[in-house]
Every structure is written in structure tokens, then in C-alpha cells.
Design a protein around this nucleic acid. Sequence first.
DNA 1: GGTGTCATGTAAACAGTTACATGATTTT
DNA 2: AAAATCATGTAACTGTTTACATGACACC
Lengths: 190, 190
Amino acid sequence: MSINHAVLGLLSIKPFSGYDLKKLIQDSFFMPWSGNNNQIYKALVELHDEGLVSKTVQHQESSPSKKIYAITAKGSAELKKWMLAVPDAPEFKKIFLIQLAWADQLDQEEIETMLSQYEKEIKIQILIRQEKKVRGSFSPDRTERETYLWDMIHDNLVSSLNYELYWIKKLRQGLRRFDKEDNNHELSSS
Amino acid sequence: MSINHAVLGLLSIKPFSGYDLKKLIQDSFFMPWSGNNNQIYKALVELHDEGLVSKTVQHQESSPSKKIYAITAKGSAELKKWMLAVPDAPEFKKIFLIQLAWADQLDQEEIETMLSQYEKEIKIQILIRQEKKVRGSFSPDRTERETYLWDMIHDNLVSSLNYELYWIKKLRQGLRRFDKEDNNHELSSS
DNA sequence: GGTGTCATGTAAACAGTTACATGATTTT
DNA sequence: AAAATCATGTAACTGTTTACATGACACC
């Protein structure tokens, strides 16, 4: 249930409403959730029940009333405990690799089509991350170290995608030797 | 619902029972599912309903009867169609990055502890992949190209993990400049 | 007058995991 | 005698997404 901890982490910066958190998660470049209502409001109820956050209702005329959540001392302790706990290994869900696993049933041009499409998809993802990095800078007064950590988090995700592009290139090159037209001459002469 | 297509892909090699498929998916180094009963048996029912696989019941004395599934012509066509469809972008779920995002609240030694634990976790994952690559070679008569593709799939996943190790090293190095003991002298003299 | 933002919440569906259940045979 | 393997299947739960629902205000 790491989304609860992610919400707790956001609230450790400053108090937010559910609606704020929803947008923060949607615009975040490193949180893997869509940030839909169901998750956020449920997480807040749970965190409140556990006493990890406090709730203040802000009535406003000509607008629905806001519920502002703030982290409690107990919440801060829980967040720290979670950070120091044994981390999960990263999870890669690369459905493309499964498509590729049976691709020997295809001819060279068809595989090339697959690779091109995958490449295009990756490039879109890189642009999205980069765009989100600009928009999703919600922590204003940062220490130098915090800025460095966030830059490295961004670097991690973009580099992972860039590695994917490099890997496609390598795969393309390696596949050339299976072309019907014998390209070995070309390869050895270059 | 890509697990259905993954099952279809496995059946494109040769016919299997549900139990066989379950173990193949569990031992696979590139399929991201646990391969539990619920998923496999449900997938097979669905594939059968759609006419993508055929079912043959094999009665055996002194053992429960087996249901052997084989891919149909319709199934082969569907598999090919799926392979040529627009691929999904890879999904990275790196909860560690979220833990790290709030780590400015910790001191240097505590962050170092986090990194060490993450490093350890990654190394375990690499060993698991490597181990699974040896066990999970279920396709016996391979073409040269298929062998190459599978090697590259394995390379992709292991390299992704190795990149994570490299990134940790880079992060550690970059964090040194925030140590209280001024290590800059050391850095500039080396 | 339609679309977008603010602000909350619920319902239904899909995806995925763990655990339960049975029963025979084989291995330790 | 206990544990693992073969072989099927179901139940309960967690996690996640999409869509529905309301209502006021602002912008084009």
C-alpha cells in the first residue's frame, strides 16, 4: 500500500487537500499511479483513521468546502520508518519483450515494424517525463541536497528510457545478419 | 489482458496443460506475472471460448486427468495480429524512488543505509533472473534468430538492473559533497 | 452555451495475489 | 511420516482504472 506512503510524503512538504494531492500525483514524473479520486480519497480516510494525518475543513462561500490534511508527529515517524525499511526491487513490466519473444514467426520487415513502433512509443514517454518534470515542481524552497536527489530521480527514469532506445539500436544491428540479402560484405567493409 | 496473449504465445511453441503453463510462467525470466492458478485457468477458459485454442482431455489412471491446450489457426492469426499491434511503453514501478524523494529529511548515514539495502535487493534480482534463464529454457529446437532474440530479451532485463547499480554508484558519489566532513580535498586530490 | 477548473465522493470493472480445497503418487 | 509434485479449480482480498454523480464559478 505504498500509495498511502506517497501521500504521506507529499503531506510532509506542506498540508494539501485531496484535490491538490490528486493533481500532484497526476503531474508527478516519478509516482506510478494515475492519481484517480478513488485512490486518493480512500488513502486519506485510511491515513486519518490511523492518526497519521489531521483534517481541517475549510468552508468557503461560492465553492465546495475544502478538507485540508496535514501530517502529524505520528505520521512523520511512520514516514521515516517506511523510508528506512527494506525497499522493494524495481518492477519492470515490458509487454513488448513478450511480443518480441514469439517474433521469430515474423519476417524481418515485420520485426522492423515492431521495433520502430516501440521506439516511437519510448520517445513519446521521454517527452512526457521531461514535460512533467517542468510542471510538477511543487516543492518550492529546496535544500541543495533535495534538489540533487530529485534531479537524480528524474535522471533514473529518463535514463531507463534512453537505455531502451540504445537497446533497440543494438537489437536492430544484431538482426541485420539474418537478412536474406547478405549484408555481411557491407558490415565487414565498413 | 496481455496474459492471455502470453499464454497464446507459449502455446504457439507446442501444446501444454494449464499446469505446464503455470510452471513455465513462474520460471520465465521475462513474463511479469506470478503465474498463479487463477490467472492461468481463467485465461485458458477465455481463449477456448474465443476459439483461439483447442482442448483435449487426456485421461490417465492414477493421476488426475490432464487438459491439453493447442493453438488453433484462429489463435495463430490473433497472436500475429497482437505482435504487430502498437506496443505498450515499458512500465517502471520503482517504489524506491518515492522513498528517496523525501529522504532529505534523513541524515547522510541513513540515506547510505537506504542505498545499501536497495543495492542488495537489486543484486538478488540479478541472480534470480540469471538463475531463471538457465531453468526456463523451454523451447528446445530454436532457430538461430530465435536464440538471438531471447538472448537480447534477457540482456534487456539484466542490463536494466545493472543500470540501477551504476545509478546507485553515481548517486553515492554525488551525495559525498553534502557530507559534514568536507571531503572536497580528497576529491580534488584524487 | 459549451468547456474547463475547483472540490468532493461512489460504483463498477478489471488485474493480480494469496490462500483454500481435493486427491493420488513420489520423494525425503 | 512428512513434504513435494502432479493436476485441477475456487474464494477472498488488494490494487488500480474508468466512469458516474453533483454543483458552482470562470472563461471563451
